[in-house]
Design a protein around this nucleic acid. Structure first.
Lengths: 232, 232
DNA sequence: CAACTTATTAACTCACTAGTGAATTAATAA
DNA sequence: TTATTAATTCACTAGTGAGTTAATAAGTTG
């Protein structure tokens, strides 16, 4: 019986339990919100999914919106910092001469890898992000808040890679990129049916294989055409 | 006082009133749903917006989901048929030799024109469509139901324009196109802030000027790279 | 104008939601 | 072991949501 009780308690201390429960709630909420949206999920739904009483959600999270924010923030900071780091590395690496493809790969592939390797939690978060990105009211603000630094860094690289192009073209190009990325992350299953099963919604590897190439060509075409417009 | 009462009552017969009210309700619902989503809007919200008692919504529309479907369907059939017609015209016109850009313009520009010229109602519908497209549960089904014919027609044109390419590349390319289009239609305001006001979310003309060019180049790049992979 | 039909509202039901505060149980520390 | 604190549930409250049914108003038709 002369076990623990000393300074450091063994496993499953209260603090640990707390942390675990919070994670469980966040996971459940992440899953449900990603499928039904903020208003399509009740606190009871979340509690039921975790297997606890619904008031426990209020105990850990002030209110519903705070829970939603916490869900989003948990992984947003991770992917944001990760991409920021990779973009910075690329900036150094390219010695002041970035390419469109290099910049896009640092941005896109880094993110896609996370969803490819990260398991279900990350996939659910991705789908949630896709919803938020397409939500006019508060969605854009959430995106701004968490992703502006990364995105502006990418934009600057693209500007450097395309020095003669109009800024608008860069911004619109980026807009197309996010749109395509967000629909990918949403994994709606539409492409599955459309292609008769040939393509799978959740196949981020297939997307990674094509997306940077596709988008790079798009940028180059728009910037070329518009800096030296073609004759009709 | 010897007014009307004759066979044909002047304006505003009951049937007309009915039709007008239904339109008013649909417009209000369209606006609200496009901003807050299906679950973010109550029938009371809609009724209040129109200025009628909330049970009137139940009178005209069986239930909330039916109202939502009616809102979506109203314009979906119009844009769907319109694009189908233009794609068919292009098919004839190109004499069996479609180009990627030609096909994409028939698809994209035709749609964008509608939102450019169609007024607020069409813009709201567009934003609603963007939300639906990114909604996993029932969203993809709604898209399938209304847009499969048009989309498959576009896909066939693209296949004909890129006869040596893998089908998957075409489908993923189309996927990128819709993603970009949907985020455009969502008009979240994000690009406005990001670009410091240089670009405007609702500026579909700017999108139209760039999108087909951008996407065409993307298709060509992916299909070229992958039918004859580059040496690294 | 009387009978009928349609549009609209009022009153109400039933299910459910978020959130509170007290009670209970389990863990931890003195 | 006892007092304290944290985790969890219970019992409620106040409010909202969708939808039903009945009543009323307005319009239409024979």
């Amino acid at each position: 019986m002369s076990v623990e009780k000393k300074s450091r308690p063994r496993s499953s201390t209260k603090a640990e339990q707390r942390a675990e429960m919070i994670e469980k709630i966040l996971d459940a909420a992440e899953y449900l919100f990603s499928r039904h949206g903020l208003y399509g999920v009740t606190l009871k739904d979340v509690a039921k999914y975790v297997g606890v009483h619904h008031t426990l959600i209020n105990y850990y999270f002030e209110d519903k919106k705070k829970l939603f924010d916490a869900v989003f923030e948990r992984r947003a900071v991770i992917t944001s910092e990760r991409r920021l780091r990779v973009l910075k590395e690329y900036e150094l690496e390219c010695g002041g001469k970035p390419t469109v493809e290099g910049a896009l790969r640092a941005f896109l592939d880094t993110d896609l890898d996370l969803y490819i390797e990260g398991g279900d939690g990350w996939k659910n978060y991705a789908a949630l992000g896709a919803q938020v990105a397409n939500t006019p009211e508060w969605g854009a603000d959430m995106m701004d808040k968490h992703f502006d630094p990364v995105v502006l860094r990418l934009i600057n690289l693209l500007k450097a890679a395309l020095p003669d192009s109009a800024e608008e073209d860069i911004f619109w190009g980026y807009h197309f990129v996010t749109g395509a990325l967000m629909l990918t992350l949403a994994r709606t299953g539409r492409i599955d049916k459309l292609s008769g099963g040939l393509c799978k919604s959740g196949d981020f590897i297939a997307v990674k294989e094509r997306m940077a190439t596709f988008m790079t060509a798009g940028f180059l075409a728009v910037c070329k055409e518009r800096s030296a417009p073609k004759v009709s």
